[in-house]
Nucleic acid binder design. Structure first.
Lengths: 182, 182
DNA sequence: CAAATGCTGGACGTTGTGTACGATTATGGA
DNA sequence: TCCATAATCGTACACAACGTCCAGCATTTG
């Protein structure tokens, strides 16, 4: 059985970390800050995580699961790139967090984590459409890269447009790019 | 007139910095390392640059100029997205440096700098094609994001394909995406 | 040549990191 | 309920890197 103290401590640290990231950005947050905000001894922190980055990476596991879970299970051939709208909506719903993550260095880690998830999703969607491995992988990188670029640009600009608008624009540019294979 | 000592010192520091980045990655390089490699006193470093990041940013100015200069002056309507091939070729020619820059945190700064340059180029290319500012800006972000994603993926994988192959794949995906406006 | 400017190297204080350890407290199983 | 176990705490320590300062020496420019 999992000791309650462990669960409690780790949860407190993760929460504190996220709050502080939103408050002053990933880089400016120190391990000491996190411990203070979480009311946890600094030595306890190191009993659970080897560094701030370790904490961050493990925290992203939850995000990954949430993103993967929110995706439609079966790939419907008529609606490919289905991840787009849910993703825009999820970002919009958690906008403060996403904005804090999207900028600054810590964002790199977070974005790379999201990139991983999306790559898997897109890869799965494209396997039927593009049997050639090299071409498919290129398209995966391209589509996810373009998507994340517009996502972060949107967030940086304050997310003025609606998730629907963003999705529509993305679908238009991306779907056409796959025309030859459709 | 610019004091020779100043030019000499700054050049030494920039060169040393690049060598060290290639050698052990941006993050692992300290100001002291740079000074040691350049045979320059640490206090002298701070007389010229306020931090390692300052040094890095200012060093990227040269890269920006080179990239901008290598682009065709006039936008030819029949060959849009002309930046792609020269860019792949430039990266291929300076592959050790690009690979070092593309990974790790320091890469973020470098990539963002390149992103800026490319955004300007693409924006210029698309102004005629897409009069609507919002649609155009979206496309700019998308195309440059997709391009940089495949560029860094290519570099990370050891740049097995030729710049020409990469360009061809990119042109296909990207040009088709602009079909509606062509 | 002389004044101005740049370089040196070392000292100093600061901040944040990661480790160690004994004392204290909470937990889960017997 | 009780107790062995395990988690937490606080503090102290060593360390790495940062950024600042200054007095003395070297080089450049006019």
């Amino acid at each position: 059985m999992v000791d309650r103290r462990v669960a409690r401590t780790q949860a407190l640290l993760q929460r504190a970390h996220l709050s502080l990231i939103v408050e002053k950005g990933y880089d400016a947050v120190t391990v000491e800050d996190i411990c203070a905000a979480a009311n946890v001894g600094r030595s306890t922190f190191y009993a659970h995580f080897s560094s701030k980055e370790d904490l961050h990476r493990r925290g992203l596991g939850a995000l990954r699961q949430e993103l993967s879970a929110n995706q439609p299970a079966g790939v419907e051939p008529d609606h490919i790139l289905a991840f787009s709208l849910p993703m825009f909506e999820h970002a919009h719903a958690h906008i403060e967090l996403y904005r804090a993550l999207a900028s600054s260095r810590g964002g790199t880690i977070a974005i790379e984590s999201i990139r991983d998830v999306l790559r898997d999703l897109v890869r799965a969607e494209l396997t039927r459409l593009m049997p050639d491995r090299a071409a498919r992988e290129f398209a995966v990188q391209y589509l996810v890269g373009g998507f994340l670029a517009v996502l972060t640009w949107w967030l940086d600009g304050g997310a003025r447009s609606s998730p629907q608008e963003m999705d529509a624009r993305f679908q238009r540019l991306a779907q056409e790019g796959l025309r030859g294979w459709t």
